[in-house]
Design a protein around this nucleic acid. Structure first.
Lengths: 120, 120, 120, 120
DNA sequence: GTGGTCTAGACCACC
DNA sequence: GTGGTCTAGACCACG
């Protein structure tokens, strides 16, 4: 069932995130058809309305296009996908830096350690 | 109960991590007494044996000292704590870079974005 | 039934408007026979008397001519039709400007925006 | 009941339009509190979820701000409201010109008639 | 079959 | 009390 979802964030937003990552990682390519709302709902064990809301949000973000009676498709507008990539990257970095700062590591220290790690 | 734990890693190691963080963040200072095994077990909703194992691991790492009949205490050996700090930092960074690489972001790109974010 | 009609104006006048538009748009041409009163009443889901009144009004306006036993026909008097065209245009413009003024847009502003839109 | 809504457009979008107009017309001023979701739902005779969706859209558009446990308020960002004004104006003009074109009136002819009407 | 809208009714977090 | 999310189940338009 819905065990796979974090209660601290709306499920529909978590679905948006999952699909966004699938697109960035290339699991879903421009022009690919997303599974139908009902299919995804079954797969995730949630109500179709919840998936519908996620798909609507993806469409609003411009990274998915919907064709009545056919399904939802990853946009072929690579600019939009590039935007999405930047956005996801910045979100991850912001969360990571915040977490590290809470642990007492400042940004310069983190950058230095990353460089050390990369040259290792 | 154990809802707060990730099934992908032994619970006792996750407890080790939590307490390590509390020490690094200064929630627990050198010389402070850790809550009793029984107390911690209740708080986390796990078996006392699991907590015992976590405390033993912390002692093995040299960052906690157990005094018979008195309890467990954060070491006052600041070198050890400094080591712990470095270790935690590197673990986090390694996990983060791995995750970012999986998303298609290489290390240089990540460093650049962190700098951009810091100067924002 | 009459769901397609606006309660704020007599239905017979709304029928007059509809038929007027059909003539202006060229759906009905000079000399064309209008559907019978009975037919139109069925189509609109209203009482034949109501349609009768609409046809009478169209005749009074001089844009429809009724021939006993044959039916009603669009006039072939193009001057009359030109008058009707002007009248409909002015009605629409008056309603539109009134509506826009109520929304806080003055006439100059509306004209400017129309020009902008046309040159877009 | 819902008699007041046009079946040809989603009810939630019609609610968005109504409230937008109320703001543009000054019936609702910057900082004013909107009626609660439940209140509006009762007033319009629709389901609270439908109103909720309308309010969410208004918030997404940036013309309404929501404060948890307090209600929804018209934004005090006059730039946003000015944007809304322009958008509504252009929508109305586009619809009007489309309608007139369908009736056989071209844009220049419409502009000329508006000028005539204004100087009348 | 597809997505889109709506309802009814529930539960939650916030204040 | 407020808005926000979710479910269950219905109906619609489109192809």
């Amino acid at each position: 069932m819905g065990d796979q979802f974090n209660p601290s964030q709306p499920i529909y937003l978590q679905i948006v995130q999952r699909i966004s990552r699938q697109i960035i990682r290339g699991d879903l390519n421009p022009g690919d058809r997303l599974p139908s709302v009902r299919e995804t709902a079954l797969g995730f064990g949630v109500n179709p309305n919840t998936v519908q809301r996620a798909y609507a949000e993806l469409e609003r973000m411009g990274i998915v296009e919907t064709r009545r009676g056919q399904g939802s498709f990853v946009t072929e507008d690579t600019n939009k996908l590039q935007e999405l990539r930047e956005q996801l990257k910045n979100e991850q970095i912001e969360a990571f830096l915040g977490y590290m700062r809470e642990m007492g590591f400042n940004t310069e220290e983190v950058i230095q350690s990353i460089k050390d790690y990369a040259n290792k």
